[in-house]
Amino acid sequence: MSVGIVGYGAYIPRRRIRLGEIAAVWGADAATYERGLELHEKSVPAADEDTITMSVTASRRALARARIDPSSIGAVYVGSESHPYAVKPSGTVVAEALGTGPAVHCADLEFACKAGSEGMFLAAALVKSGEVQHALAVGADTSQGAPGDALEYSAAAGAAAFIFGSTNLVATMEAQVSYMTDTPDFWRREYMRYPRHAGRFTGEPAYFKHTLGATRMLLEKTGLQPKDFAFAVFHQPNGKFPMRAGKLAGFRREQLEAGWLSPWLGNTYSGASPIGLTAILDQARAGDRILMVSYGSGAGSDGFVWAVTDRIDEVRAAAPATRDQLDNGKLYVSYGTYAKMRGKIRMGE
């Protein structure tokens, strides 16, 4: 039985802040960040947006492309490191808003930036087992970096949703792998507002080791080579890392560009490689193969190989394209507005 993606959808908030706007507040050199991290601006969620609202919109778009009865969805997974409630699921809101009905296995997932791909991994496996007809997996985040920290230049917001099934696929899943070790490169302790990270330790021993490890596993498992893929997308903590990982793994820039959104989107954490995948699906053709590798600090990578079917052309226009959301209708905010919307200002009682 083939298992894969029946429908996909992305949501990118309309607000943006330019890197220079952040750098000016903290006396940093914007050009250094723009060159060094290949970041120019990032998405900012409005005060009325959070992981749940973005997940709902992305999921509705996935549903519009899937053209399935929501009551056929038997599992809902929302992966995020910024669930609005510490205790109380995001997924229940998403499921209710979609109208799945109560016969649903629902869970919120957390694994730093790979919580979204975790859901995809589980959803695909659950469909493959025959336990559910359709399963929804969402990766979404409204991540926060501490004011002035390097992460503040990249922490962005966005969501991607995928409905998995075994018929009417737009992309067949040819392989899924997971690669993890215990690596303390980035964390947020309970009750802490902002995360901490281990500086350059987040690079080679963390991001690159795991993304390249998962890529190697996928290639070994499928017997494919980088040239067999039309596209590849890696987790995008900044603009630079995914390009470097792709090149180290043997991919050319042309294979990486379609899903490379971070220079103008920022790091959407659990949404990063999943949103990249939606951008690729927006332009892929039947027969194209896509390699996708996520990364979550702590640390691990999930990897997938997708093969696009001819149904892609039928569903593409049923929801907004990801690049359109990234490039059009942008509303730029000042640092002051950003700080207010993100709850960074201490308010009166």
Binding site: A47, V93, A97
Partner: peptide, 23 residues
């Protein structure tokens, strides 16, 4: 119409969701 936060009961209370219109 898009799904949005409409109100919240302070930082510790429930969050009420609903719809807002967008262009």
């Amino acid at each position: 119409l898009e799904f949005r936060r409409i109100q919240e009961d302070g930082e510790a209370g429930v969050i009420a969701y609903g719809h807002k219109a967008v262009p």
